[in-house]
Amino acid sequence: MNAPKTHGAPNSPGVLATRNVRALVVRTAGTNCDRETCLALERGGASPELKHVLELCEKPALLDPFSIFVIPGGFSYGDDLGAGRVLGFQLRTHLADALARFVAKGGVVLGVCNGFQVLADTGLLEGVRTARAERGVGLDVNASGRFECRWVTLKAEASACAWLEPGELLPVPVAHGEGRFTVRDAGVLQRLKQNRQIALRYVRPDGSRAEYPDCPNGSVEEIAGICDPTGRVLGLMPHPERNLTPWNHPRWTRLGPRAEGEGLRFYRRMVETASALAK
């Protein structure tokens, strides 16, 4: 019932070492990136399992045996009350303890796109059990006022996040209407920098500082993703799981032969990190 629907991708060589890394992908009404997320985890070397949030809320201990927890992209509950709000509310209400336990024991948490919005809503990115009123970061409606689907380039910053290599460039698509990373005040940004929480920025394809549309949403300091102070919880707006094959890249017909998409490396390293932490 909960097996991922990836239409039977066979294991690629070299993944058996981490195959025991179990990844829980939570889904709910409006989740829509479950296919590519499960595929990325599988090809990255993990064993993904999909679970509905209602099941998880009923039995939070279901999370315990997993090493990776992923909140994939989509429009959870239609984003009717704000991007990621209702799913965030469910996690805050029912899974706060289980998630705190999960991060404390070395589990890896990833939120992509809507998952990033959910993570921001829960406060988990700002440290375990951040009170709602204390929250300092948010994901605002794009400065263009429009949903934007386009490929961008990400640069990994020197951050606490264990599976990003500082300086590496990662071409990935974004597809969101509310991805403008926003902070309550300058102090919050300062704190994020001090804690090495700024993990990913939008840059131009050559790595230089981006403006619209290379930075698609008007994020403060072009921030595309942040991690929590432990470096084990990462949220980002773009979709590395949509750049797995040699043919996902928008300009692959202009590039030379490619073995795989750059997004796969992101997932492979995340799985390796989770595997190492679990040992």
């Binding site: 829509n32 597809a175 979709h239 799981e241 949509r242 094959t245 300009r251």
Partner: peptide, 21 residues
């Protein structure tokens, strides 16, 4: 650009192509 043409991760040739897409 207002349509998500990448979701599901299956896209190989997109609606807009070329050096600057």
């Amino acid at each position: 650009r207002q349509y998500d043409h990448e979701v599901q991760g299956t896209s190989a040739i997109k609606p807009l192509v070329g050096e600057r897409e």
